[in-house]
């Protein structure tokens, strides 16, 4: 806040006048003794003052600054800021996604590796099953280890004729049964 000094005129004894926009060095001019004030006035009137003091007053608007902005400009400003913010957010999101994507790609490759390992294990197990089901292997085990022999003709008995659901069930189990 600017401080201005102004010596008042004769009316107030040369003292700064405390006004609305002024600040007096003397808080209360009435508090100065009258004799002093008269002597000073007399001295000024009687002879040429030794030094003229000017007291200039600078008007300073010290009230709150309220700028008048047009609403359209303000709205455009808000829009621009919002747009910029969105673009910035998108940029940030893009950058985040990009690096997150790379990070996920590493994870994905890792998972793919595990998946391939699982698939390879699955394939190896299928291969092992197929190998174990080799008719020649089963035949040799049956004959050599278990001592089984081919059934003779009269040891094979046919089932009685089935009908309805039983036939369907059997055919479902053995789809390539001869007609």
């Amino acid at each position: 806040m600017a401080t201005a000094y102004q010596w008042g005129g004769a009316g107030n004894g040369g003292f700064p006048i405390a006004g609305q926009d002024r600040i007096s060095l003397v808080r209360n001019p009435q508090s100065v003794p009258r004799a002093v004030r008269q002597s000073l006035a007399t001295a000024h009137r009687g002879r040429k003052p030794a030094m003229v003091e000017f007291c200039t007053v600078k008007k300073i608007d010290n009230s709150r600054l309220v700028r008048h902005v047009e609403p359209v400009k303000l709205r455009n400003l808000y829009r621009t800021v919002a747009l910029g913010g969105i673009i910035a957010a998108f940029c940030m999101l893009y950058i985040y996604q990009h690096f997150h994507c790379i990070d996920l790609s590493f994870q994905l490759e890792d998972l793919k590796g595990k998946q391939e390992q699982a698939q390879a294990l699955n394939s190896e197990l299928k291969l092992e099953i197929a190998t174990l089901r080799d008719p020649h292997r089963i035949d040799v085990i049956a004959r050599h280890q278990l001592g089984l022999t081919q059934p003779t003709a009269n040891q094979v008995h046919e089932y009685a004729n089935l009908d309805g659901a039983e036939v369907a069930a059997v055919q479902y189990v053995r789809p390539y049964r001869a007609p």
């Binding site: 040799v140 004959r143 050599h144 022999t149 081919q150 003779t152 003709a153 009269n154």
Partner: peptide
């Protein structure tokens, strides 16, 4: 013949993979 074969097969060598 099948009955006779069965008995013979039981005594046959394990190297013989033929069924009958």
């Amino acid at each position: 013949a099948a009955y006779r074969t069965k008995n013979e097969t039981d005594d046959a060598s394990l190297d013989d993979l033929s069924p009958i």
